[in-house]
Amino acid sequence: MSDQPIVEVRDLRKTFSVKHAGGVSTLHALSGVNFEIMRGETLGLVGESGSGKTTAGRILVGLVPAGSGSVRLFGHDITGADGKVQLAKVRTRLQFVFQDPYASLNPRMRIGSAIAEPLDIAGGLSRKDRNDRVAELLDLVGLPKTSIDRYPHEFSGGQRQRIVIARALALNPEFVVCDEPVSALDVSMQAQIVNLLLDLQDRLGLSYLFIAHDLAVVRAVSTRVAVMYAGSIVETAPKSQIYSDPQHPYSRALLDAVPRADPDYVRHPVVSGEVPSLLDPPPGCSFHPRCPFAFERCRVEVPILKESGPDRRVACHLFA
């Protein structure tokens, strides 16, 4: 059981139709995504804005229907014909933490009711047990019990994110998708929330899919890292390796671009160009227009994610 992944994503694809002045076109948000997450592990998912991180995370919890490919959660395939039924079976074992702490709490709902919402939906708890659980959850995320009767606007961004985490943990989920949970927070709040997530993982044995665009934060939380670019995963590797020895040129570019809090640091030249349009993706490797190492093959053939070392995979023709 323990070496069975709890999340297994195979060749996941998703397109959206977008309307614009010229008609309707197809946006390729995910074009063949593969990853798995083991029990107790945190997979950090990084990549540029629009690369499909949120879409992938939303599909995992059933907020967005998958296009094609398969998603197995705890062994249940939620993308098959009876996907809805399978999803309902694992529903209480999954949760989602959103990026924007200002939009993820109903402004007209008291904190106590907000945290109790998953309990109320699942039902089956006495009034007292429910209230005890809420108090316990507040304690777990380090907020005073007096918060129960207060409203979201009375809390700062970091405190709200704690409330959101408490709500997510209400039903003791085993797997939590954290979609940029600290991106809207400043450094000190960010560190507090990251530590909280790590403590909770230690205490409750949670597994996370941690979505972020900040590689330094991902380093602090992840066991493995997957780098996404324009709808596909270009590299996955254990944390220790991706930072010391990134293989995909985009992973390298991403690392080089992080500003360092060190005035003496001399950065490598930054990668030029922009993320390609998902409406009209370039042929071949989607990174080739920006890649300093691109050669002929990159322009015509899409590289696939292949083993490139122990427990690591990369989608790049340089490693073929």
Binding site: G62, R91, F98, D100, S104, L105, N106, A114, E117
Partner: peptide, 16 residues
């Protein structure tokens, strides 16, 4: 809004 989606993740019915 994200809070509506959060309720959906927890399995809330449309009525709720």
């Amino acid at each position: 809004m994200d809070y509506v989606q959060a309720a959906q993740v927890s399995g809330a019915s449309s009525l709720r």
